[in-house]
Design a protein around this nucleic acid. Sequence first.
DNA 1: GTCAAAAAGTTTAAAGATGCAACCGATGAG
DNA 2: CTCATCGGTTGCATCTTTAAACTTTTTGAC
Lengths: 149, 149
Amino acid sequence: MVKRKSYISDYCPSARALDVIGDWWSLLIVRDAFDGITRFSDFQKNLGIARNILSARLRTLVDRRILEVAPIAEGGARQEYRLTRMGRDLFPVMVALRHFGECHLFAPDEKRSRLVEASTGKAVTLVVTTEDGRPVGASDTTVLKVSED
Amino acid sequence: MVKRKSYISDYCPSARALDVIGDWWSLLIVRDAFDGITRFSDFQKNLGIARNILSARLRTLVDRRILEVAPIAEGGARQEYRLTRMGRDLFPVMVALRHFGECHLFAPDEKRSRLVEASTGKAVTLVVTTEDGRPVGASDTTVLKVSED
DNA sequence: GTCAAAAAGTTTAAAGATGCAACCGATGAG
DNA sequence: CTCATCGGTTGCATCTTTAAACTTTTTGAC
């Protein structure tokens, strides 16, 4: 979609992820999809995005298997956009962004929406851990360059 | 930086976060900063970004308190860009993106870089949990619209 | 100390992306 | 049958990004 130097994303998983959902609108569309929005015009109204751009973004998100299109069930021939399995796997990314926003981008007394567990109403957050479950911070970690799996 | 309808990010923490680091280059710069890069020309070489854009992005990242500028220690008058406390708090976002990339954007046998705990070499990952530590998935959660803190 | 090269930008013109409004064909409501 | 709505597409004006040239300090080599 956007023409860029692709050598950046050769080996780095974060860069490849950004290649897929790194432009301004894509993640907002995904956020709305997590909120249950499925229709073209609902995305459009909610985001205030230009229609041609929304159309292009939805197309590339479908191409990249983040969303899938299906005809709406009840009789009609209209379509709806839903997150694929892969799209739903962006959930931690959304939670991480939300958490960052909550911590740093709101005045203490400012109104905001909150993400909670549906059954208990408890706040949802996230932790970075090693594979055996111990929490780690940025400074405890290092990136191994280009290793075989 | 980019002119957008700002009513999108009125109350949603994810949208505000995207407002700050949601454009293509900013998160890549932050990723490099996590990798220890501090100098203008190192960012430029590593990313292949146009210099004027890098200059603009660094400036806005500094304005938004993600990065800070300081003169380089050893005698010189050159500057270096470092993550602030707030910038380091983007770590979970980077890990989430990296994890998504690793799971979905590489062929099984393809070479890639990996994020590990420095002291043990164990893989680093992340979990979405409730405040009391139980893991939850996207479908277990719901967003409460605009609530007072 | 001098000269050359690199660092860290700024400027400018062309190419590409985005936003806006108008238009269009297919449904669906009455 | 007629009209409004949905889900787009097309064309045009505007804004952004890029690439490449040009400054101005700062290093480094001799």
